[in-house]
Amino acid sequence: MLAFFKEPRAVALLLAASLTILSNTVISPALPGIEAQFPGNPNAELLTRLLVTAPSLLVAIVAPFAGMTADRFGRRRQLLFGVLLYAIAGSAGAYLPTLPLILASRLVLGVAVAIVMTSQAALIGDYFSGARRGRFMGLQIAAVNFGGFAFIALAGWLAGISPRLPFAIYAIGALVLPFLWWAVVEPDRTTSKEAEGHEPEELGADPRWGLILGIVVVLSGLSFVLFYIIPTQMPFYLASIGFTDASAPAQVLAMVTLAGGVAALAFGTVRARLGRGATPAIGYLLMATGFGIMDMSESMTIISLGALFVGGGFGFTMPTFFAIALDIAPAHRRGFASGAITTSIFLGQFFSPFFSTPLVSWLGYAHTFAVASAVLVGMAVIVFALFSARSPAAVTA
């Protein structure tokens, strides 16, 4: 796995992927402080939560089109443009004067994220194949989570100084852009062989790839509805039980990303041994355990332990979505497939507060965690039944 770090193009794709973790959660520790800055806005409670998930709506809308344009016009130029737009729109929240303007900048950020994610995922499919692609997907999620661990910890510290400062972290996109310009090359997709390893696309001709992709789209979207209960509700839950410092939600989010990174490093090996049905099923069960633990106690230690389980489970689950999509899609439709998964992920993120906020009002935070746990157990059963029945070639691809 360390061999990937010797390839500039692999490092570039890891950096591009790491930017996406910042798109939403990096400002989560600052949400209570941002809400307090706009006491005259009657919708400040909902709007501040939407600052976390607003980019998701535009990602969901734009991603399918971004995927198709990447298929038609090329991945490289689209990736570079997306990273530049990301840096500009993401950092704008540091200085914009009103909550509606900040929300608008978050929507533009969503456009940028859609462009970056679809072109970056399609490039993975172009550059790598077979088991090597699976290992890279695990490494990518690990890089995203470890990067998120560092940046969320930094965001918690910055939010303690000013709730606007975490927005400045998005400017890192401008710093990595020159390296991406140098390292990323447009792949030749005219050949029937894979660019890396010259392995055939066993699953690309599967006439059921559209149906399989549709199932994965639904599962990935629901997964993010549940997972995003953590960044959208945890800061307010912790404040309600006495943990009002911005470092408290940053600690919980850091535990999620750290555990997710460790689990993702093992994703390639676990998937090769257990298959693509059991691997996400275990991930869902770990997430269910984490939410169940959070339902048990208001202790910061117990909550952090639950966060570790949620993050670890997500580290096994998240790489599955893109890995299956890239496995089954024909080479000339990888942009479309990655766009479809990106849309489902960010629709899940966007709708998460609309699902969780009424539940919290009705049941309270602890029982909301219990509901999430029960749903995840059901999803573990479903994903195991659906994908374990696939052929051995599909499982190990």
Rank of each mutant, 00 (worst) to 15 (best):
A3C: 11
F4N: 10
K6I: 01
K6D: 09
R9K: 11
L13T: 00
T20Q: 04
I21V: 06
P29I: 00
G33H: 01
Q37C: 10
P42F: 12
P42R: 11
P42T: 11
E45F: 13
L46P: 12
L47S: 13
R49S: 13
V52H: 01
P55I: 01
V59R: 00
A60H: 07
A66Q: 07
F73I: 07
R76H: 03
R77W: 08
S91K: 07
G93A: 12
G93R: 05
G93I: 08
L99I: 12
P100M: 15
S105M: 13
A112H: 06
T118F: 03
T118I: 04
A121T: 11
A121C: 11
A122G: 09
A122Q: 06
I124F: 15
S129V: 06
R132L: 15
R135V: 06
F136Q: 04
Q140I: 07
I141V: 14
F149D: 07
A150N: 10
A155L: 04
G156L: 08
W157A: 14
L158C: 02
A159V: 12
P163F: 06
R164D: 09
L165Q: 14
Y170S: 07
A171W: 03
G173V: 00
P178M: 10
P187K: 00
E194S: 13
H198N: 11
P200R: 08
E202D: 13
E202Q: 11
L203S: 04
L203E: 00
A205C: 05
W209P: 00
L211Q: 15
L213A: 08
I215A: 05
L219M: 11
G221C: 02
G221L: 07
S223P: 05
L226G: 04
L226T: 04
F227P: 01
I229T: 12
I229N: 09
P235L: 07
F236C: 11
Y237T: 04
G242H: 09
G242E: 11
G242M: 08
F243E: 11
F243M: 10
A248Q: 13
A254V: 02
A254Q: 01
L258F: 07
L258Q: 01
V262A: 09
L265A: 00
V270M: 07
R273V: 06
R276W: 05
R276F: 06
P280T: 08
L286F: 01
A288E: 00
G290C: 03
F291V: 04
G292P: 01
I303C: 01
L308Q: 03
L308T: 02
V310E: 02
G313L: 03
A325C: 14
A329C: 14
P330A: 13
A331M: 14
H332F: 09
R333S: 13
A337D: 10
G339T: 08
F346N: 07
L347T: 00
Q349G: 08
F350T: 04
S352H: 10
S356W: 10
W362R: 12
W362P: 03
A366D: 06
S373D: 06
V377Y: 13
M379P: 01
F384I: 09
S388V: 09
S388M: 14
R390T: 13
S391A: 14
P392D: 11
A393H: 14
V395T: 14
T396P: 00
